[in-house]
Write a protein that binds this DNA or RNA. Sequence first.
DNA 1: TTGAAAGCGCTAACAC
DNA 2: GTGTTAGCGCTTTCAA
Lengths: 350, 350
Amino acid sequence: MKQLMVKEATSGIVLADIAADAACSVAAVSLVLNPRPDRDSRISPRTRERILASARRLGYRPNRNAEFLKRGCIPEIGVFLPDFGNDLMLEFIKGCCVSAKEEAFSLSFCFDDASADLGAFLAEATARRNCALLVYPRQDPRDAGEELRRYCASGGKVVLVEPQGPAVRCPLPELPRVFLDDGLGGKLVADHLLKQGCRNFVIYGDGRTRVSAFVKQIEKKRCRFTHFSMRHDPAAIIAEIRSFGADTGVFCTLDILAVSLHTALLREGIIPGREVKLCGYDCLFSPDRLTPKLTSVFQPFRELGYRAVKMLIDQVYGRAVENMTFRPELMPQESTLGYGKTDNGATSPK
Amino acid sequence: MKQLMVKEATSGIVLADIAADAACSVAAVSLVLNPRPDRDSRISPRTRERILASARRLGYRPNRNAEFLKRGCIPEIGVFLPDFGNDLMLEFIKGCCVSAKEEAFSLSFCFDDASADLGAFLAEATARRNCALLVYPRQDPRDAGEELRRYCASGGKVVLVEPQGPAVRCPLPELPRVFLDDGLGGKLVADHLLKQGCRNFVIYGDGRTRVSAFVKQIEKKRCRFTHFSMRHDPAAIIAEIRSFGADTGVFCTLDILAVSLHTALLREGIIPGREVKLCGYDCLFSPDRLTPKLTSVFQPFRELGYRAVKMLIDQVYGRAVENMTFRPELMPQESTLGYGKTDNGATSPK
DNA sequence: TTGAAAGCGCTAACAC
DNA sequence: GTGTTAGCGCTTTCAA
């Protein structure tokens, strides 16, 4: 019954401890340690130094709980995420967690599945009194643009995640955001496949920005291409690859599609890296886990999450925030560089 | 500069509102609404009913922040997770999030990577004053058993996640925990493969509990098997499969190994579901995304996370908690049920 | 430039 | 049974 009264052994340093140590009032300490800019301008440099030194020496950690109790909201950032289940999302989450932990904020993740859309998330976040929101809209934020606008209009802090890059139209251009330069990804793939000698192209999957950047690049070289949406069966794509011939490059806009096609190709005796060049997107599979290894595009999702949360916290404290753009990176492997050229392709020791 | 003063439009119902509505004191409301058992025994049933009715009607939401400020810790649950990057972990996280949201608690995830082990996590959680911890130790919790024991001894609330099932030895048997019956998973796979006519077996990958349960089951039928650790190359496994012949069943203890082997087999012209039965574990790939579709074992990780957090919150409020066991489920697909038996195996329309 | 004091929403002694 | 009161750690007036 008395579990709740248990206090940690390390009872923690509070402002009063610092005030005592630095021989000043709690208010002065608060002013100096307050994360907002220009709060401590009223305190003399000497006092400030004393306070900062004490805080550092005593190992002070802010109690965001108490801080936000006063403010009428909670030191928790609501994070709205698409319901993709893969490493990228996990990477993003990890980045958010590191950031939040560094700043002593909490996180509350909400996944855009059957149980909650952006509107429901915003309602919940409001009722819950989250101090700020990180919104990674599944597609176009227009879906719930009005609710989002209202939330911001009533003083809510929001940062948008736009992995599709700046090309996507958004009705809330004034919101701070983190971009992923998706177009660059498409361009990198195109350049790489062209360099590997591909002259005919198949695009498998959707993703407007990366696809159109890819197309733009290959069209410069007057190459043919066929585009299959992700609804298509690998069989249809294989037929097209066969008709195109050996100098075909396949751009799968998602690794999961690439693996799907990969297995289907092998099943047909067409070996990626030899009879066709195959490139995925997302780097979901450790390269040593597919035969042949799959060329793919790495996206710095962890960094994206890390930065987005930092931006949000800056915004909460009224510090200046700037939009950020991140760049994907091509990771060439056997499926485009070439595979098993020296022998008959057998990897079995037999 | 005045961003921080912005208050939500919905200013929220507090205990005082309910006290006013139910014509009683704030203390009485607190006593009734306090989540701990036996707190409200001193309040008369009639008053209690009035208070509960008011709370419900006004849509009261507890302010855990204020609640825990008083208690000297924060309404945030620290969650220590292995650094696996896959859907299962995400499922677990989703379950935790739903639970935490329902109870108005926050979460702080920490991943067991190069930057933090269990010891570091415990130190951080203590300094941060998390009200409770959910610990999913990578392997044997003995790694940091001493720190964990100390943490609990000083009043810390902990729930363990043990996906390996009860078979794993643990130095802290008194800790509440959620189990996943991993042995059952191995047994399900063995039974299924035996039923599909397999008489020779290859095990690829590690995972003591599920492997030994699998072995136990096939040994009952006096079947041969060879065990390859996940360090092995698919080539070695393929050689073994060839030497065993057509009635071979392969149990990959992870889907990622199954896919690795899957691609390598296809590459060699051996078709899972036809020349060999292949079974994975984890259900990481939507079955329609591999050719042939992969039989695998579903593990209710979302439910596991959901329950674990609930248990933790029960524990925080001094309610009785009971260990829970969850059961994996076999999802049979083409790779064991049979694939392309009617034609020559061609799936291409050509 | 600094400090005293009130108060955020809740809990828990202690009175009544 | 119920109410009064004093905080939890911090922010922010307001006075000095």
